[in-house]
């Protein structure tokens, strides 16, 4: 035995040792890896198309366990693109960032904000682009923001911040009250949802044609839920809806019109 040990080349013995250890640990490692990925402690490898878009050094870094550094660097680069109003470049930088760290809701929120709010605002203002092209690109960015928000929500089903950003795009840019209401309604019940989400869902539903009754029921329920919901907008919206829906006087809420500056009592 000793003679055998002394005769065989060491690298061979080491290789055999490594192989045995490798075979023993492989199933354990695969099991642990799956559990780590399931519990979101470990990020799965980036998607194939993101890999193809990455520069060589970014790819090396990513494969070498420097993923967070690479993505932080790309966020920095994206900010540079934002400052220079280079929206296409910003978009592709975030495509990689969100692929590297799909579980970071901040990235999704930011890209939706950049494209849905900043890029669209830029399209409204930028005089160097012809009018029709600006309109087209305004719509394109807004819709792209919506699509990215939906991707982000699919990756982070519990995310409130992405939905809030999405609602802002619908509300401020696309002026789609029905969709805005839907997104606010989606927020309800999420762990980090703002408390106003449920009320907002009602306000925008009220503006969504054909959903007035639904909005009225929704808001009235909130009204009777407690004093904390008796905010001015809620009362005004309910009173407007009471008129629109011709609710009998006896069923209307007794609260007077809130006394707000700049608000004219009808």
């Amino acid at each position: 035995m000793k003679a055998l040990f002394q005769k065989s080349p060491r690298w061979l013995l080491v290789l055999v040792g490594l192989a045995i250890f490798g075979i023993v640990r492989a199933p354990f490692e695969e099991h642990t890896r799956k559990k780590l990925v399931d519990s979101h402690l470990l990020l799965p490898p980036p998607a194939q198309d993101a890999i193809q878009q990455m520069s060589q050094s970014a790819l090396m870094g990513t494969l070498g366990g420097l993923r967070t550094l690479v993505s932080s660097y790309l966020v920095l680069e994206a900010f540079e693109h934002f400052s220079n109003k280079e929206w296409e470049e910003l978009r592709s930088a975030y495509a990689i960032v969100t692929s590297l760290e799909p579980r970071d809701e901040n990235h999704w929120r930011d890209v939706v904000w950049h494209l849905g709010i900043n890029a669209t605002a830029n399209m409204q203002l930028d005089e160097t682009i012809p009018e029709f092209e600006r309109k087209r690109r305004f719509n394109e960015y807004a819709l792209l923001a919506v699509e990215l928000a939906e991707q982000g929500i699919a990756q982070n089903p519990d995310s409130a911040v992405i939905r809030q950003q999405l609602a802002e795009v619908y509300r401020e840019k696309l002026k789609d009250d029905c969709a805005t209401a839907r997104v606010y309604q989606d927020l309800v019940g999420l762990p980090e949802a703002p408390q106003y989400a449920e009320r907002f869902a009602g306000y925008f539903l009220a503006k969504c044609p054909g959903h007035e009754q639904e909005a009225y029921d929704h808001l009235l329920r909130l009204y009777y839920e407690g004093e904390h919901n008796h905010v001015a907008s809620l009362i005004i919206t309910i009173k407007d809806l009471e008129k629109q829906l011709e609710i009998p006087r006896s069923l209307r809420i007794t609260e007077p019109y809130p006394d707000l500056p700049g608000l004219t009592q009808p």
């Binding site: 642990t32 780590l36 470990l42 990020l43 366990g65 993923r67 760290e101 579980r103």
Partner: peptide, 12 residues
């Protein structure tokens, strides 16, 4: 080594 990168998840 990849499975030792679980600090990333904790940081996130």
């Amino acid at each position: 080594f990849q499975i030792f990168s679980f600090s990333e998840g904790i940081v996130q």
